[in-house]
Design a protein around this nucleic acid. Structure first.
Length: 432
DNA sequence: TCTGGGGTCCTAGGACCC
DNA sequence: TCTGGGGTCCTAGGACCC
């Protein structure tokens, strides 16, 4: 808005970061209130390791990513409730939370399944903490999911505010750090490794250089940080200093790549089984492409051996498709060809995956002179397939290459899954 | 015995060209 | 014996996020 001297006044931005508390666990609790107050964890695919923990479970010392087999005794002793991941449920609950949040600002960025940034710049005349409490109360009332709200002038500071809001009993889930007054105190209370953008590697480097908390990082030598962490590190310093370097992204940029991969329950040796798995991943990937109305120009296929063994080779091959495609049958054919190239007999594999990249809109694909595929016909076939699978359940129609047997060794298991309470299809596809 | 999946961004280094 | 220098493009891999 024009100010008195006639210049355009650029208002300092205000971000709120909304984060669902222990999201997957909270989703399970909505439909099973008896879990309230008890230790609860949700496991990764194949019931492999803990990916969500209730506060009670955290208090028992259960770590993020800890393997389930290490937790058996502890869980029995403390009667920890255990669930397999139920992505259909979490995805639907996420949508409910996001729709609720949209009531509170026209400008919002969905950052992940359980987080969103809200632009509150225009709300500078209201009490932001009060507004944050209103948001929190409404989401909890409408969806049953508890959240925390952190408010500040940059995304990174909002992240920090959110973290402190969760931990502090006084804040009770909402903290406004938009004023400079308490920032230093707040930053000093956050370990450097807990700052958004600082991972294990950078944290170790910073600690070795006497930078132990977010305040020390804010005031660190730019040359040192720039040298070690590049442009990302310098942006981070700006953000900690209240200079916004990560704007709100309301409509996320088009996806650049799209991958599907799974870890197997046990090592797989046979090409036939790997071939079924890769075909299933291609089917899922191609379906996602079509949902995005995109085609891929490049396909990568890879195989991984057990990463917990000393010797763990990784094999991959990249295929440049003659015509960018989202046609399942064609992509399966190329993937199987690639798979045969990288497969080694006698090698046990623990994981396989595909990656579709060089994505572009499906309209405007150049017709190729010597294309052996009738693209119109293939497109029609895929539309029918997607329509049937969309209305009658995923995997109703699938390619034979995926195989038929019910207990394929490459299939992911979810032995402790709750019901898909909120969605139409309780039964789940080959590859979710 | 058993230890997830899906992304993005950035950088270094090689190939290639003029 | 000595063996440019810069730009671009691509790829692999690292680091990080949830």
């Amino acid at each position: 808005m024009p100010s008195e001297n006639g210049r355009i006044e650029k208002r300092m931005p205000v971000f709120a970061l909304v984060d669902c508390n222990n999201f997957y666990v909270s989703c399970e609790r909505v439909f099973n209130p008896g879990l309230t107050g008890k230790p609860v964890i949700v496991l990764s695919n194949n019931d492999g390791c803990a990916v969500a923990r209730s506060n009670e479970a955290k208090a028992l010392g259960i770590r993020m990513g800890q393997p389930a087999f290490q937790l058996k005794k502890l869980m029995a002793k403390h009667q920890v409730a255990v669930y397999s991941s139920n992505y259909a449920l979490y995805g639907d609950m996420s949508q409910r939370v996001m729709r609720t949040l949209m009531q509170f600002t026209p400008r919002m960025e969905i950052y992940s399944i359980d987080e969103a940034f809200l632009d509150l710049t225009a709300f500078n005349r209201v009490d932001l903490a009060e507004y944050g409490r209103k948001i929190k109360q409404t989401v909890e009332q409408w969806t049953g999911i508890p959240i925390s709200v952190g408010i500040a002038g940059t995304k990174t500071l909002a992240k920090i505010a959110n973290r402190l809001a969760k931990k502090s009993t006084k804040a009770d889930g909402v903290l406004d750090l938009s004023a400079a007054k308490y920032q230093a105190q707040a930053l000093a209370a956050v370990a450097v490794g807990d700052v958004w953008g600082i991972g294990a590697k950078s944290a170790a480097f910073l600690l070795a250089n006497g930078i132990g908390n977010a305040l020390q990082l804010r005031d660190a030598d730019r040359v040192l940080i720039g040298k070690k962490m590049g442009i990302t590190g310098l942006k981070l310093l700006d953000e900690l200093n209240g200079v916004s370097r990560y704007p709100l992204e309301q409509s996320p940029p088009r996806k650049r790549s799209l991958g599907v991969s799974r870890t197997f329950r046990r090592e797989i040796f046979s090409l036939a089984e790997l071939s079924e798995a890769v075909s299933a991943y291609i089917s899922a990937g191609a379906e996602k492409l079509r949902a995005e109305k995109a085609v891929a120009g490049v396909l990568m296929v890879y195989l991984m051996t057990n990463r917990f063994k000393d010797y763990s080779p990784y094999h991959s091959t990249t295929i440049n498709l003659p015509v960018p495609s989202n046609y399942t049958a064609e992509l399966i054919a190329y993937a199987k060809k690639g798979l045969r190239e990288i497969y080694r007999q006698g090698q046990g594999y623990k994981k396989a995956g595909i990656l579709l990249s060089d994505l572009r809109p499906e309209t405007g694909v150049q017709a190729a002179f010597f294309d052996e595929i009738d693209r119109d016909k293939a497109g029609g076939l895929m539309r029918v397939l997607d329509l049937i699978n969309g209305t009658m359940g995923s995997g109703t129609i699938r390619y034979g290459a995926v195989g038929l047997s019910r207990d394929q060794s490459w299939k992911t298991v979810f032995n402790l899954r709750s019901r898909a309470y909120t969605t139409k299809w309780g039964e789940l596809p080959e590859v979710e």
